[in-house]
């Protein structure tokens, strides 16, 4: 009898342990939001929310210091847009190639290649871009966009490929039977059917690009001013944090954390649109 009680107790205990482990992710998100907000919001209050978000000048070491992060917000958005313009078409076409064109033998070579691309550390990408792209286009917005476009390729290819593979084969066969060629069937029937998956891939790519730090720092030039041209330097929010955190004084440090809060806000918006997309595709 007592042995059975012990077993029962153990069952209950462990199911509680599993539940607690599952709650860890809630705790983590809670702690992250709490610590960033507590350390970042006061600075925003002190500087003034509008001055902080819409200020066009960032001179943290001036007396008095000026903390406006609009240049970095715009910088992040431009660089991300550039990455999407470069990465999405190439990524989706490559996914079409992998899912619908590629001979099986070649696929066995290419797929691990794409996986390897996903695994290459961002500092290695940065090192490469510093040596190969920067001599051509300078430390600039264009360089950062090209590099990020390359870096989001594996994300986009992977998701777009599985979205394309999830489209029922009958769609393609139906199109063929109606006289459409192979590529017409793929691009006008299969690709539209995989639309929501591809959109998800693009949105995830946006998240990757806007959050990327080290590689961007290495090639973007990082001038804290409003972006002026494709071939001039630009600073993103992520770069702003990582460059100045090391030596920042009190208010300056808080302003950097507040930059992190703004970045987190962008990510949350991206996540919300992702889950909205997923819900839509379920219906």
């Amino acid at each position: 009898m007592s042995k059975q009680n012990i077993i029962k107790l153990r069952e209950k205990l462990m199911s509680a342990v599993f539940l607690v482990a599952a709650l860890a992710s809630i705790l983590a998100v809670g702690l992250i939001c709490f610590f960033l907000l507590v350390n970042g919001l006061p600075a925003m209050g002190e500087i003034g929310v509008f001055k902080f978000l819409l200020g066009r000048e960032w001179s943290p070491t001036d007396i008095p210091p000026v903390f406006g992060i609009l240049p970095m917000i715009v910088g992040s958005l431009y660089v991300t847009a550039g990455a999407i313009i470069i990465g999405v078409p190439i990524g989706v076409l490559t996914a079409v190639f992998l899912a619908r064109v590629c001979p099986k033998r070649l696929y066995k070579l290419l797929k691990p290649g794409v996986d390897l691309m996903a695994g290459i550390p961002s500092v290695v990408y940065g090192f490469f871009a510093m040596a190969v792209i920067v001599p051509l286009t300078g430390s600039s917005m264009l360089t950062a966009s090209i590099l990020l476009g390359v870096m989001i390729l594996p994300t986009i290819i992977g998701l777009a490929e599985s979205a394309l593979r999830a489209v029922p084969e009958q769609y393609y066969e139906g199109a063929l039977a109606l006289g459409a060629g192979h590529y017409r069937s793929v691009f006008f029937i299969v690709l539209p059917a995989a639309k929501s998956g591809i959109l998800t891939a693009a949105v995830l790519g946006i998240g990757r690009a806007i959050g990327e730090t080290m590689a961007v720092v290495m090639v973007a030039g990082n001038q804290a001013r409003m972006p002026v041209s494709l071939l001039k330097g630009v600073r993103t929010m992520t770069a702003n944090i990582v460059i100045e955190m090391g030596y920042a004084g009190e208010l300056h440090r808080q302003a950097l954390i507040a930059t992190g809060v703004v970045l987190l806000l962008f990510i949350l918006i991206i996540n919300l649109s992702l889950s909205a997309l997923k819900n839509r595709s379920k219906q």
Binding site: S25, I26, V29, L31, L36, N39, G211, T213, I267, N271
Partner: peptide, 28 residues
């Protein structure tokens, strides 16, 4: 309901950029 929240927060975690983790780790 708890499961729904866990899934949501897990997805949020997977989208957070590493520099934000760095900031949080530094603060906490």
């Amino acid at each position: 309901r708890v499961v729904a929240v866990i899934r949501m927060t897990t997805e949020t975690l997977s989208g957070i950029p590493s520099i934000v983790y760095g900031l949080f780790g530094g603060l906490f």
